[in-house]
């Protein structure tokens, strides 16, 4: 009962008129929308896409499973997981400590330091901003090198870590 009364009471009134510009009405200066439903709807849709793709892949392709682990039987070549094959490839180039420890450590430190090395304010929130061409090219070269190593390690290395092109058959032993 009391609630109803408050609802019906007018709690405001015209007090004064002031000269000045009118505030922007029905126009959002920051171009924003409510997270519900605009963001949440997109998030649910994306989840369904991710779930569908992963389930689809899992129905179509089986995860690899080789014979049981046998310490006496070394496969040739033995390979690390694909994301470490770049390192394994770098390992074969010189002293193992350089490729296996120094190279990845430097890479990690360099990545961690990126925002403290590049302190310009150019091109925030813009894809491939022209003012950032140099750093973008450097980073793209780094990525290409890293994934290049992975591709070499994954597809172009055969027995004894010898180099074979895609079309070359590995020797039968």
């Amino acid at each position: 009962m009391a609630e109803k009364q408050i609802d019906n009471m007018k709690s405001y009134g015209l007090m004064n008129l002031v000269k000045g510009k009118t505030p922007a009405i029905q126009k959002d200066p920051y171009e924003m929308v409510m997270s519900w439903p605009h963001l949440l709807f997109r998030e649910v849709v994306l989840f369904l896409i991710v779930l569908t793709v992963i389930m689809g892949m899992s129905i179509l392709f089986n995860a690899p499973l080789e014979e049981m682990a046998d310490p006496k039987n070394t496969p040739n070549p033995a390979k690390a997981p694909w994301y470490f094959l770049g390192l394994q490839e770098a390992l074969s180039w010189g002293p193992p400590v350089l490729g296996g420890i120094v190279f990845p450590t430097l890479l990690a430190v360099l990545l961690l330091a990126v925002p403290y090395l590049d302190r310009t304010r150019d091109g925030i929130g813009v894809w491939f901003h022209p003012k950032r061409r140099t750093v973008n090219i450097l980073f793209a070269m780094g990525l290409t090198f890293w994934f290049g190593l992975i591709i070499v390690g994954t597809f172009l290395r055969g027995p004894s870590w010898d180099f074979y092109w895609f079309w070359e058959a590995w020797p039968v032993h």
């Binding site: 690899p64 014979e67 682990a69 033995a78 997981p81």
Partner: peptide, 14 residues
């Protein structure tokens, strides 16, 4: 399996 065992062998050698 073999894949698992020898991949980890490589990493541990590293």
């Amino acid at each position: 399996d073999q894949l698992a065992y020898w991949a980890i062998t490589i990493v541990s050698n590293l």
